[in-house]
Nucleic acid binder design. Structure first.
Length: 1068
DNA sequence: CGCGTGGTAGTTTTT
DNA sequence: CTACCACGCG
């Protein structure tokens, strides 16, 4: 092969002139004038496009125009008439990539890329082939494709039938193993003995075989089979393979570095025909080893396909110089690369910035601030992204952005078709379309609850197996015979009749209408609209979306085929928003500004990757880092945090080794974020501006105030409070303080329950020592009752139908997440709040000493006393696992792990403005740095709630003086709980509601996380005092932040103090 | 059958 | 810390 580098080394070399000597000399051109679509290509790209015959490997570095080459190549083949659209096989990994390729080819040709039947994902093409030759695989062409969920359920059945304890051998694990085998194209008999040994005492391969048998019985395949079965068919039926050899004149593969063994074999079989196989990939972006991708495939391409030509694309059009240098330098640390050097085509631009934060919360805040700053400068949120290593990192950003009111969008997360409600709905539709779909029937036979329990289902299944009929048919027989308990029998009868009715309408009723009808008549939508939990509304929205997404299809069957393979729904519409996603999900995308948080040892590179795959694991992590950095066009901003909560425990971390692998010349180590007005004190980490006496002279100049004044407040979904602008005082207080008395609910007490929302204790029945919590919509219950708790502040009063839930609570009952239950006898009297109950003891900072007294026995970190988080006694003793012994009966009743019914203080209107009590809490990092944001949010909130500016300022002043304090307050009338933190004010009810609405519209992933922001505060253990001297055993990297000396002597890592703040203010 | 309790595990993810 | 799953009591 000629060395393209030698020829095209000069980056400024012009592209081949259309019709020029070079172009003609290449000999592939038929026309004197190159068609338009070739015009913008550089010489390497052009070579990749025009080398049509024989195997070709295009090594396309990040941002070098890979997709462009692929699509242009297709256009070129078609334009030259080398093949007709249906003679080109073009494979991608994702539907998204396939779609994009289709549209871009269409754009190039100036018409839709019609007739490209064989453009799609490995799996969709595999499915298509398998449907054509189903009988050769012992299937009917109508086979169903099981997704992971179905697969696991089926495996559970197999395990149960084989009497294997699925505690010891989880189905998930077997599924994982089978997936692995299928990725390597191993059928049950090929499984290496050693590996088969690893599961269920050597029964792994056997179970795999049984699973395959069950699949065949069900006329079903899993994803792996979509490739494996065609491979087997090709191998066993030369004539079939021959057909495809004749058909596919040209083959193209995207992301070749991600192919697994099965995909490789499949391609190799097909490529034996024309040998015109073009693979495009980048070994440096291989990040899917853990799911079977073999980088080897790309490394040995020229051995597998003799005579292969290799073209390297190294001109990067995406990123500026410093970013590319940083990325190249980093990836150069990997061994076993094919080796490419990305060459920038533009100026050096900004350096990659590296900055450290004290903890993950600060990281999120500072990134949030940077984003706001960029936004103010006119950058669009759409052009910014936060790329995380693991999805748990996302939450902190979501919460922060909600606080800031910053639009964001989470990519990834639970996929639309994986949501429970969608899967349920699909199951209904599946049963209607094909009554034989046993898995689907089982899924929904008792959803909504019909009184058909496991016992009944088991009978149905057994009967179906015995009679060899479908589940609905078996049900029918059982019903006719009068088997099953009466309740189940009747319900089942109705259900089966309904299914018959719906099936009968299959061809008569338009499918969208029918789907609606099914969901309605089955009681499924009703089930959700009755549900009062925060997610229910969103689930209903999703169901509507599902029905809507059926519209483009001709009938239900068409839709079902689409769903089983195309598991995504186009989202990403509309509003300007920051993208939050994992690094994996970011491959192939680009953004002006990319934030890369969490560059810490253990997280990135991930410990597990290192543990399980050693050096190979590290290299894959490094490639992931490379992918991350190369997503940035103009700005890459790397962050790490010194403390992060892992499984609920605060752990300190050291900066990632990858930081040290970045070249000094391309990196800016940021000491203090420039985005704060004035930054932190002297730019040192962790210092508070409260350390300086004059820090607060200009409270009203803070960004928050300005924002508050500019924006006005009408668009906020403030509750009724915003409307009544009369004189008003609200009082907030530390929730923990008021909840210390949680045991004593009394009449009139406002309470919040996670499932039922806000309510009032309307009755206390002394005799029976019963308390009654009743909840209903206001108009029905009178104004003492308020509906709509967290997340519903703005929907209060909306007609949700005459629903009411009302229960009696005995004194020893509490509410748990799922409802009410008996409160176990207390081992000790309720704990007083560390800060004392309201009205007494205020003004005294809670001291660590008091906490420690209450703290748990030695060796256990002191736990902040919390009315809500009780530790069970035996958990306090050494964490070592005790042999499982059934404890004596009385020991079974323990304290509840959580209470969800929380008393809410009633607002009071008496205290003079500006009264502040606060504890300084050095130990609580969250308070250690009060930033401008504190006052910001106060101003905003104050105005939103109808305070005068003056009153707001008083509040801000007061808060600012209480440097580093934090408080939570609850204001029932405003429908939510707020949290003062150094990060600002979280008005959870407002915010959540506001975002929830936007979110369900944008089908963003929004779970009730914002609410958790408040909860976590109570139970949270924050990083304690700054470790003395350099944190984390000294800076490992040049990027490690300099630590200020601890403010408190003798600080050790332990739980934080409780901090209280009480304030009130009067509006004019 | 439903609910509560206890135990367990907790990167990355497409089809 | 918390989400999920399986078991057993009422």
């Amino acid at each position: 092969m000629s060395d393209p580098n030698a020829r095209y080394d000069d980056p400024s070399a012009p592209a081949l002139r259309p019709g020029g000597i070079a172009a003609r000399a290449q000999g592939t051109m038929r026309a004197a004038n190159a068609p338009d679509y070739l015009a913008g290509l550089n010489p390497e790209q052009r070579e990749a496009v025009e080398t049509l015959d024989g195997p070709l490997l295009v090594l396309a570095g990040a941002g070098t125009g890979k997709t462009r080459v692929l699509t242009t190549r297709i256009a070129h083949i078609l334009a030259l008439g080398k093949a007709r659209p249906f003679e080109i096989l073009a494979v991608t990994f994702t539907n998204k990539a396939a779609r994009e390729m289709r549209t871009r080819v269409g754009d190039l040709l100036g018409r839709a890329a019609e007739g490209m039947e064989w453009l799609g994902t490995f799996h969709s093409i595999g499915a298509k082939m398998l449907r054509r030759h189903a009988e050769l695989a012992g299937l009917q062409p109508s086979f169903t494709i099981l997704d992971t969920d179905d697969q696991i359920r089926l495996l559970k059945q197999v395990l149960a039938a084989e009497n294997i304890d699925d505690k010891r051998w989880p189905a998930r694990q077997l599924a994982f193993a089978i997936d692995g085998w299928k990725n390597r194209a191993l059928s049950p008999k090929d499984v290496p003995v050693g590996e088969a040994q690893a599961y269920a005492n050597g029964r792994g391969a056997e179970l795999y075989g049984l699973y395959q048998t069950r699949l065949k019985q069900l006329n079903a395949v899993d994803f792996g089979d979509l490739l494996l079965e065609p491979i087997r068919i090709f191998r066993e039926n030369a004539d079939v393979l021959g057909q495809y050899h004749r058909r596919f004149r040209y083959m193209l593969v995207d992301e070749y570095q991600d192919t697994n063994v099965a995909q490789y074999l499949w391609l190799r079989l097909l490529a034996q025909g024309s040998k015109n196989l073009a693979c495009v990939g980048d070994d440096d972006q291989s990040i899917y080893g853990w799911r079977g991708a073999e980088v080897e495939n790309i490394l040995k391409f020229d051995r597998d396909f003799p005579g292969a030509k290799v073209v390297r694309l190294e001109r990067n059009y995406r990123s500026t110089g410093h970013i590319l240098n940083a990325a190249s330098h980093l990836i150069a640390k990997n061994e076993g690369r094919l080796g490419k050097t990305l060459r920038p085509q533009t100026e050096l631009g900004e350096k990659v910035s590296v900055a450290g934060a004290w903890d993950s919360g600060e990281e999120a805040r500072q990134i949030g601030d940077e984003i706001e700053a960029l936004q103010t400068k006119g950058h669009k949120l759409d052009d910014m992204a936060i790329l995380v290593r693991a999805s748990f990192q996302m939450r902190e950003f979501e919460e922060r952005f909600i606080t800031l009111g910053l639009n964001y969008r989470v990519v990834g997360g639970p996929r639309f078709y994986e949501r429970a409600e969608i899967r349920d709905a699909m199951a209904y539709i599946r049963v209607v379309a094909s009554p034989a779909d046993a898995l689907a029937f089982e899924r929904i036979v008792n959803v909504p609850k019909r009184g058909i329990g496991d016992a009944s289902v088991k009978q149905i299944v057994e009967r179906a197996r015995a009679d060899e009929v479908t589940l609905p048919e078996a049900s029918r027989r059982l019903v006719a015979e009068g088997a099953l308990p009466a309740k189940a029998r009747n319900a089942l009868k109705d259900l089966v009749l309904s299914f018959d009715r719906w099936s009968g309408e299959l061809d008569r009723t338009p499918h969208v209408e029918l789907a609606e009808k099914i969901l309605e008549e089955s009681g499924y939508t009703d089930m959700w609209s009755k549900d009062r939990s925060a997610e229910a509304q969103g689930r209903l929205e999703n169901l509507k979306e599902l029905v809507r997404s059926m519209e483009p299809f001709e009938n239900l069957r068409g839709f079902l085929e689409h769903v089983s393979l195309v598991m995504d729904v186009d989202g990403a519409r509309g509003e300007d928003a920051v993208t939050i996603m994992t690094l994996h999900a970011a491959k192939g995308l680009e953004f002006d500004t990319v934030f890369l948080p969490g560059w810490e040892e253990g997280l990135f590179p991930h410990q597990r990757s290192l543990d399980e795959n050693g050096r190979a694991g590290l290299e894959e992590e490094r490639r992931l880092a490379y992918v991350g950095v190369t997503r940035a066009k103009r700005r890459a901003k790397i962050w790490f945090a010194s403390n992060r909560r892992v499984h609920g425990m605060w752990q300190s971390s050291i900066p990632s080794r990858f930081l040290d692998e970045l070249p000094e010349t391309a990196v800016d180590v940021v000491e203090a974020p420039a985005t704060f007005g004035g930054g932190h004190m002297g730019g040192s980490y962790g210092a508070s501006r409260f350390d300086r006496a004059d820090a607060f002279t200009s409270t009203y100049e803070t960004p928050g105030w300005k924002r508050a004044q500019e924006r006005g407040f009408d668009r906020g979904s403030a509750g009724p409070g915003a409307r009544s602008r009369g004189p008003m005082t609200i009082e907030g207080e530390l929730v923990a303080a008021s909840t210390a008395k949680s045991a004593g609910f009394s009449q009139g007490a406002r309470v919040f329950h996670q499932k039922f929302g806000n309510g009032t204790v309307v009755e206390v029945d002394g005799k029976q020592a019963h308390r009654r919590l009743r909840q209903s919509r206001p108009e029905a219950r009178g104004r003492q009752l308020r509906e709509g708790g967290v997340g519903r502040a703005g929907t209060r009063g909306r007609d949700r139908g005459p629903r009411q839930s009302s229960r009696w609570l005995s004194t020893n009952q509490v509410c748990s997440r799922s409802g009410f239950r008996t409160r176990p006898r207390r081992a000790s009297p309720p704990r007083p709040s560390p800060c004392g109950p309201r009205g007494s003891g205020w003004g005294k900072p809670c001291s660590r000493a008091r906490l420690s007294e209450r703290a748990t026995p030695a060796r256990t970190p002191a736990t902040p006393p919390s009315w809500r988080t009780h530790r069970r006694p035996d958990r306090r003793s050494p964490p070592a696992r005790r042999p499982r012994r059934r404890p004596p009966k009385q020991a079974k009743r323990r304290r509840p792990r959580s209470l969800s019914l929380r008393p809410c203080p009633t607002p009071s209107f008496s205290t003079p403005p500006g009264l502040i009590w606060a504890a300084r809490a050095e130990g609580w990092n969250m308070q250690a740095q009060w930033t401008d944001e504190g006052s910001t949010a106060i101003g905003e909130i104050a105005r939103r709630h109808g305070f005068s500016d003056e009153a707001g300022r008083a509040m801000a002043d007061a808060l600012n003086q209480s440097a580093g304090s934090m408080a939570q307050f609850h204001h029932p009338d405003l429908g939510g709980m707020g949290q003062w933190s150094r990060g600002g004010m979280l008005m959870i009810g407002d915010m959540f509601n506001h975002h929830l609405k936007a979110a369900s519209r944008a089908s963003r992933r929004i779970s009730p996380k914002p609410w958790r922001a408040a909860r976590s505060w109570r139970g949270a253990r924050r990083p304690a005092n700054r470790p003395p001297g350099s944190a984390n055993g000294g800076p490992r990297s040049s990027a490690a932040p300099r630590r200020p000396a601890p403010r408190t002597a003798g600080a050790t890592r332990s739980s934080p103090r409780r901090v209280g703040l009480r304030w009130s203010a009067t509006a004019a």
